[in-house]
Simulated scan of single mutants.
Amino acid sequence: MTASTVSPASSTPSKAGLLAVICFTGVLTASCTAHPPGSVGQGRALNGGLQSTGRIGTEHAQIGEVFWAALPLPNNTSKEPVSIRKARFTEVPKGLKISEYRVFNTEETGGVYLLAYSGGKYGTKDPEKLTNYADKPIRVKGKQESDYYYAAKVTVTGPVHKDLGGCSFWYTQSGEEYKQTLPCQTTIRLGKPLPDN
């Protein structure tokens, strides 16, 4: 069985058709995940670890409070290194507003601040005073977990009935651009305030 794609304007196969033929016949399997130049492919190199399997959050938020919500710590499950240039929550519910993203180092925060109050309430370091590494891509070697993680500055503006989610990462690997969305769920709900001590 053979496959071919012919451009209607000429008798030469199109690039997309040629790639399909090569992938179909198995001649060059490494190129089967390639995408057209200038486009962003569907990434599969990252894993979000435990943070992608559960839900974090608080049910004691107050209107006007500001939190730093972490996106999953990137784990590169592939053999090739990746350079992550940005990460974002793509599902932001009514009642929450994101004003900026930063990149923190796990050594400075003593792990990942999954959901931290701005100002350093309740014994955590103030995320506002930590070094922000967002000015350059995060490079993660193959088969390794990153030492850096993205976090969003989230202000509570009203009642919240849905969760932050859709943790998307944009990265480069082997000269190709990719976007990958990892499972994540951060719950912020209004409720009785926590005691200050």
Rank of each mutant, 00 (worst) to 15 (best):
Y101N: 05
R102N: 10
R102S: 12
V103N: 00
V103R: 00
V103M: 05
V103P: 01
V103Y: 00
V103C: 10
F104S: 06
F104V: 05
F104Y: 15
F104N: 00
N105R: 12
N105Y: 13
N105F: 11
T106F: 00
T106V: 14
T106W: 00
E107H: 12
E107Q: 14
E108Q: 15
E108G: 00
E108A: 14
T109C: 05
T109W: 01
T109P: 02
G110E: 08
G111T: 02
G111S: 06
G111Y: 06
G111R: 04
G111Q: 06
V112G: 01
Y113R: 07
Y113L: 14
Y113C: 09
L114Y: 11
L114H: 10
L115R: 00
L115Y: 04
L115C: 07
L115H: 04
A116V: 05
A116H: 07
A116T: 03
A116D: 07
A116W: 14
A116P: 03
Y117M: 11
Y117G: 03
Y117V: 01
Y117H: 14
Y117K: 14
Y117Q: 12
Y117E: 10
Y117T: 11
S118C: 08
S118A: 15
S118T: 10
S118R: 14
G119T: 11
G119L: 08
G119E: 07
G120Q: 07
G120L: 12
G120V: 07
K121F: 10
K121C: 03
K121Q: 14
Y122E: 09
Y122I: 00
T124Q: 12
T124C: 10
K125H: 06
K125Q: 13
K125C: 00
K125E: 10
D126A: 14
D126Y: 09
D126M: 10
D126F: 11
P127Y: 06
P127S: 09
P127C: 08
P127E: 09
P127A: 09
E128L: 12
K129S: 15
L130R: 03
L130K: 03
L130D: 04
L130I: 11
L130N: 05
L130W: 04
T131G: 00
T131Q: 13
Y133L: 13
Y133I: 10
Y133G: 05
Y133D: 07
Y133M: 11
A134F: 07
A134M: 08
A134G: 12
A134V: 14
A134H: 08
D135M: 07
D135N: 15
D135C: 00
K136V: 08
K136G: 04
K136S: 14
P137L: 04
I138T: 06
I138Q: 02
I138Y: 00
I138K: 02
I138R: 01
R139C: 02
R139D: 15
R139M: 13
R139W: 01
K141C: 02
K141S: 15
K143D: 11
E145A: 13
E145W: 06
S146V: 08
S146G: 08
D147Y: 11
D147C: 01
D147F: 09
D147A: 12
Y148T: 03
Y148Q: 13
Y148V: 01
Y149T: 05
Y149N: 04
Y149G: 03
Y149L: 02
Y149Q: 01
Y149M: 03
Y150C: 01
Y150Q: 05
Y150H: 04
A151G: 13
A151V: 10
A152M: 04
A152I: 04
A152Q: 03
